[in-house]
Amino acid sequence: MNIFRLCGDMSHLAAIIILLLKMWKTRSVAGISGKSQILFATVFTARYLDLFTSFISIYNTCMKVFFIGTVYFTIYLIYMKFKATYDSNHDSFRVEFLIVPVGGLAFLVNHEFAPLEIIWTFSIYLESVAILPQLFMISKTGEAETITSHYLFALGSYRALYLCNWIYRYYAEGFFDLIAVVAGVVQTILYCDFFYLYITKVMKGKKISLPA
C-alpha cells in the first residue's frame, strides 16, 4: 500500500458516500444515471469474485464488501425506493454498446486465458467506460447538481490517483500491469472534460451547465 493508492481508495469511498448522502438527504435520484450504477455493480461483482477465495488484507476485504454493498444499495434507491425521481428518459445510453466490445476485448487481450482472469480483465475494461452513461445524461440534461459534480470529481480523482500509484509501484516494487494502466488512463481521460468544467465553475461556486 502507498499514499497514492490510499488517497485513491479514500476518494472512491468519498464518491460513494457523497452519492448516498445526496440521495438520502434530497430523497431524490434526479440527475443520477442508473445505468452507470448498474455498470459499476457489474464491475465490482466481476472484480471481487475472489473475495472469498484469496485473502489479501482486512482493509482489502472490508473495502470490497463496502463497495459491493453500497453499489447495490444505490441501485435499490434508484430503481425502487426513489424510483419516482429517476429520470429514465435522459438515462438513455445504450450500455450494450459498451458491454459487448468490452466483453470481446477481455477475451482477446488479457494476462492469462483463464475464467477468473478474463472476468477480472472484463471488470477493468468495463470500469474505464462505466461512467459514460452518467456523463451522457449530464450532457443531455445540460446541467449537474453541485453535489453530483462533487461525486464525479471524487470518482474521477480515484483512478487518476491510481495512475500515480502505478507509477510509484513501478519504481518502488517493479510492479507493472499494462491492462490496468491503459484502462486507467482511458478512464481518467474521459473525466478530463468534466474536470475542466468542475475546476473552472464548481470551484467558483457556479453550477455546471453545459450548452444543451
Binding site: D9, S54, I56, H111, Y162
Partner: peptide, 10 residues
C-alpha cells in the same frame, strides 16, 4: 510462463 500479476488492488 508470463508473470500474471496477483490482483492485490481494489
Amino acid at each position: 510462463d508470463e508473470f500474471v500479476p496477483k490482483h492485490d488492488e481494489l
